[in-house]
Design a protein around this nucleic acid. Structure first.
Length: 651
RNA sequence: GCUGUCGUAGCUCAGUGGUAGAGCACACCCUUGGUAAGGGUGAGGUCGGGAGUUCAAUCCUCCUCGACAGCACCA
């Protein structure tokens, strides 16, 4: 006999080898029906797998969070079965669960078409209805490799061969079809249900390495109920409407064109937002003890060789020949092969070191917080470009803090405080923070890394801020924080960053005179709050759906007279608003008030001042707020005082 | 960069092997209308670029450029 302990602490005796299903049935028929797996001493297992001894158990129902994971995992398996049945000769590789669903990578010469996807989905429903049991089998490693090789599944054979020596090789069978899998699975295919949908086909490299073959990946989404699936699909549709590229066009904020791919053409409205952000962050950092500089865009190759960028970052740089171009019509661009090169700066840091080095610095001068709204160019791969989120020309709200090692912790904390204040002003709450630690290839002694990583972790702990480690993801010159925000459809983008650097001051020979009268190396902290204006505005557009807070709105208020009789009054109000510093507009077009309201509402103007004869006679304005239905009638003075107040930036 | 899909008017999109269409926007006219589209008329396109097949290509084929999705990349 063995003793099983339930989550509520109750214990019951069962004979050794009892399965989770037996346990569930011993409790109630309905529980047995709802159960899909069991947790045994914290390990999720198949319900049909015998339990070998005393254990703490917890039955997992289909409705549980773990149940949803299993649904998605099982769905990936039946996707693979469906594909192999419909397209013999297709090799299976891996098929994990991901956020909101699952995918499976296949090796096949022909790509899958949209019609194929429909067929596959239909077949998957058939497999669910066939209600096959998922059966776990333990195989001998060599037999498994031999088996998969014999049926032409070379990727699977490779996977098995690469599994750790002590790993048990488990195979799951559903009907005729089997797959290498760690498990667990639900009891049968019927438990998957029908709330799934195949979403898209895409290429993906075998084992995530671009030197390997490209496989075909099929993405699917799966849920517990049809309702959940519907809700998810509706959410996606809604999110698409908030796509910053779409809104950027609709709201006339910016555009891109092929002659300048990856570089933004900011339109007046978009650039208004940009400028407001720049003014805001400038006020913030000036208040926080920064000085601001501006450095060259184009610098000689020798400079980048010294900084290390020529060697480590060149493939991402735009390199320009330092020669006068040939002016002969129809001639070559250059008369002779250029020998000297310059490069557009991909980063601001080396230039900041030059400013630092222009005079002898004392330890008393530190920390120096040197900021630049630095315009950088990076030669990003074509496939990486993505609206404002990933561009080739970007402006960072960059700064480098030159400090002593014993100042790191305070400086980092100070930055986090600044960062928090700023993000609070924008209402960003879903911020993911990573501490990226030492990578395999790195510069600097391990004990320096120890201190640096500890200083950064301590700073967050001191402030009570939760974070996750991104092991091995740090820069080669030091550990860093990554602050991630999500776009409309949940893709995560790194915005703010804070990086410790022990290498660049060394390479570029930056030093200060310490208390002891000797030269010392300063530490550099690279940091950005927004990250880049481009990406930050992209995220801002998606998170607000284009409805900018009043202080950022390109047009804060439109004065709309109802008839031409009220134009004089409207004009007067408009001029007053302008005098008060508001970004106001007046709509004198020969259009009905309905039309004007609709248009400015679609343009997401936060306030519309509607004025007709009545308002003129009473000296009032009828204020319509974006998204609201009711109007508010205020005296002109009150209205102006109120709107001026609302338009104030948060800092 | 890789795989796939797409590329028609300023925007959103329809369409056909016989040299193109809608709605919105734009221009002009009528309309002075009280909180999300008043009416009429008109102008506007070498159908991304190049080559090929064909009597004939926006449509078929190839190349190329760009956009989109995913992958790889992301100091």
């Amino acid at each position: 006999m063995m003793t099983l302990t339930f989550p509520d602490g109750n214990q019951r005796e069962y004979s050794v080898g009892t399965t989770g299903m037996d346990v569930a049935e011993s409790i109630s028929k309905s529980l047995a029906k709802a159960s899909v797996a069991i947790e045994v001493d914290g390990e999720l297992r198949d319900l049909m797998r015998p339990i070998e001894g005393n254990a703490a158990i917890s039955i997992v129902k289909r409705d549980d969070e773990d149940g949803l994971e299993l649904i998605r995992h099982d769905a990936a398996h039946i996707l693979a079965e469906a594909v192999q049945e419909l397209f013999p000769g297709t090799q299976v590789t891996i098929g994990p669960v991901i956020e909101n669903g699952f995918y499976y990578d296949f090796a096949r010469d022909e790509p899958f078409s949209t019609e194929d996807l429909e067929k596959i989905e239909k077949k998957m429903h058939d497999i669910v209805d066939a209600n096959e049991n998922f059966v776990r089998e333990v195989w001998n490693r060599d037999d498994a490799i031999k088996h998969f090789k014999s049926i032409g599944e070379h990727y699977k054979a490779e996977l098995i061969a690469d599994l750790p020596k002590d790993e048990t090789i488990t195979i799951y069978r559903q009907g005729e079809w089997l797959d290498l899998c760690r498990g667990p699975h639900m009891v049968n295919t019927k438990q998957i249900g029908h709330a799934f949908k195949l979403m898209k086909v895409a290429g993906a490299y075998w084992r995530g390495n671009s030197d390997n073959a490209m496989l075909t990946r099929i993405y699917g989404t799966a849920w517990r109920t049809e309702k959940e699936l519907e809700e998810y699909l509706t959410m996606l549709e809604e999110a698409e409407k908030r796509d910053h590229r779409k809104l950027g066009k609709e709201l006339e904020l910016f555009h891109f064109q092929e002659e300048a791919q990856g570089s933004v053409f900011w339109h007046p409205k978009g650039y208004t937002i940009y400028n407001q952000l720049e003014n805001y962050i400038r006020r913030r950092i000036y208040d926080d003890g920064y000085v601001e500089v501006k450095t060259p865009q184009l610098m000689d190759r020798k400079f980048w060789e010294a900084s290390g960028h020529w060697g480590k970052f060149r493939e991402n740089m735009f390199v320009v020949p330092d020669v006068v171009p040939n002016t002969d019509e129809d001639g070559p661009v250059f008369k002779e092969e250029p020998k000297d090169f310059m490069a557009l700066k991909p980063m601001n840091c080396p230039a900041h070191v030059q400013i630092f080095k222009q005079s002898i610095k004392s330890y008393r001068d530190l920390p120096i917080r040197m900021a630049e709204m630095g315009c950088c160019h990076r030669n990003e791969a074509h496939g990486a470009l993505h609206g404002l989120m990933r561009v080739r020309q970007m402006v960072q709200d960059d700064a480098h803090i030159f400090c002593r090692e014993d100042q790191i912790r305070d400086e980092v904390k100070r930055f986090i405080a600044l960062f928090n204040n700023v993000y609070k002003d924008f209402g960003f709450e879903d911020i993911k923070i990573f501490l990226a630690t030492r990578p395999d290839v790195r510069a600097g002694a391990d004990e320096v890394w120890d201190r640096a990583e500890k200083a950064m972790a301590d700073a967050l702990d001191d402030l009570g801020i939760a974070f996750e480690y991104a092991e091995g993801e740090g820069a080669f010159y030091g550990p860093k924080y990554e602050f991630h925000l999500k776009d409309a459809i949940g893709r995560s983008w790194q915005c703010g960053t804070c990086q410790l650097d022990f290498v660049l001051p060394e390479r570029l020979d930056a030093s200060y005179i310490g208390e002891d009268g000797n030269k010392h190396r300063p530490v550099m902290i690279h940091r950005a709050v927004f990250g880049t204006f481009e990406r930050f505005i992209g995220i801002l557009i998606e998170s607000t759906g284009g409805k900018m807070p009043m202080w950022l709105a390109p047009t804060q208020c439109v004065v709309a007279p109802i008839t031409s009789d009220a134009e004089g009054y409207a004009q007067k109000i408009y001029e007053t608003l302008k005098e008060k510093g508001l970004r106001a507009d007046i709509d004198l077009r020969n259009e009905k008030i309905n039309f004007k309201i609709r248009e400015h509402s679609l343009q997401k103007v936060p306030k519309i001042f509607v004025v007709g004869k009545r308002e003129e006679e009473a000296g009032t304005v009828a204020i319509r707020t974006l998204g609201g239905k009711d109007q508010e009638i205020l005296s002109l003075d009150e209205a102006i005082t109120k709107i001026v107040d609302m338009a104030k930036p948060p800092f």
